[in-house]
Nucleic acid binder design. Structure first.
Lengths: 192, 192
DNA sequence: AGTATTCTGAACCGAATAGTTCAATACCCG
DNA sequence: CGGGTATTGAACTATTCGGTTCAGAATACT
């Protein structure tokens, strides 16, 4: 009957993600999005409202398909999951590293409301997932602090990844941080 | 003889800094810079080559006048300086928070070479200053790791500050991190 | 007042931008 | 083959952008 779709919304978004990742919403232009997705401007604008919409949908897909929540909810809960999260959630695949969501918090002043909401909402659910793992290993009165430390550390890793995507250095840093956390966990329980 | 200068290069840069800080190089436009500095476009372009140049000079001035190195080299060296650095270096003055340099590493793909060099160079000297303080309190084999932790934590703080500039939460996070560090320092020395 | 300098305002330019439109074509399937 | 949809290409608009130019106003000193 008819010609079938050559591209799916999802694959287009997957290819648009690295562009926004690297250049941000303001820094990315439609030509780059055409080149990266392999889809014509006409095609893009038939699938998305505008560049902002494209960005929001890319960010949504990024957050939905990313490994963070899956990693953080795997059993058993505990610092093992945190280590996995810190190791794997900031992607180090080929060209780009870090995290689109963390990068985007830097651009927060320029983002459409929908994107800001996505970021804030996901920050909450991600933090809740982190917390469940922390609660499994730390006394209650330390949980807040440890969660904040983990999140801050994660953000720092992601930003630094823009500068140099060095897998080895990344692993070392995560391990050093985990040693610190584990030391704190055991001494914390010893005190309790 | 002649009309004296109404604005100085330095005050203009000081007023331009928050604009780049908040919107980034790509996200800031000349109109915003005019409004923020109170200087006409003609005036700006008589003082600076172009927008890129304005950004580079703003970043340079930011790094030169910022408190980081001063804090980190005050005597005695040690974790006290680190705490001061983490507490004060990310500015929380009024509207804007975080750090222009950290924010700019997110935009690294769009920055002029001179800006990239500024960031990398200052990262090195800043890291060297951090290291001197760490060496005063940690056994040699832990120094690298601890330095990386501190820097990563700092970056994380700065990025998160774009989202919510909460002075109280900031202080709590720094203190929690310092507790962790101090615990590690004492146990590290005990082991040695 | 006269003069040298600073600064502004506004007009202007070319390039790049996001976004629209539509005719032409590629494609699949019955 | 032919009908119908997916996609492209290109032309086009409108806006914004960075950047230039320059005449004239503001200012301070002699």
């Amino acid at each position: 009957m008819a010609r079938p779709k050559k591209f799916s919304r999802e694959t287009v978004l997957d290819k648009a993600i690295p562009v926004f990742w690297r250049y941000g919403l303001a820094g990315a232009n439609v030509q780059q999005l055409e080149a990266a997705t392999g889809v014509n401007k006409s095609g893009l604008y038939s699938e998305f409202e505008n560049k902002d919409d494209m960005f929001v949908e890319a960010l949504r897909r990024y957050l939905e398909t990313g490994p963070a929540l899956r990693i953080l909810s795997s059993r058993p809960l505990g610092l093992g999951n945190i280590e996995q999260f810190l190791s794997l959630a900031p992607a180090f695949s080929g060209d780009y590293a870090g995290c689109l969501s963390v990068n985007s918090t830097r651009d927060i002043a320029l983002l459409p409301d929908a994107a800001v909401r996505l970021i804030l909402d996901f920050n909450e659910t991600r933090m809740a997932a982190i917390r469940k793992n922390v609660e499994a290993e730390f006394p209650q009165d330390q949980v807040d602090d440890v969660c904040n430390l983990i999140w801050t550390f994660f953000s720092g890793i992601c930003i630094d990844a823009n500068l140099k995507a060095d897998v080895g250095a990344h692993r070392n840093r995560v391990q050093a941080f985990m040693r610190l956390l584990r030391g704190s966990a055991s001494s914390g329980r010893a005190e309790a």
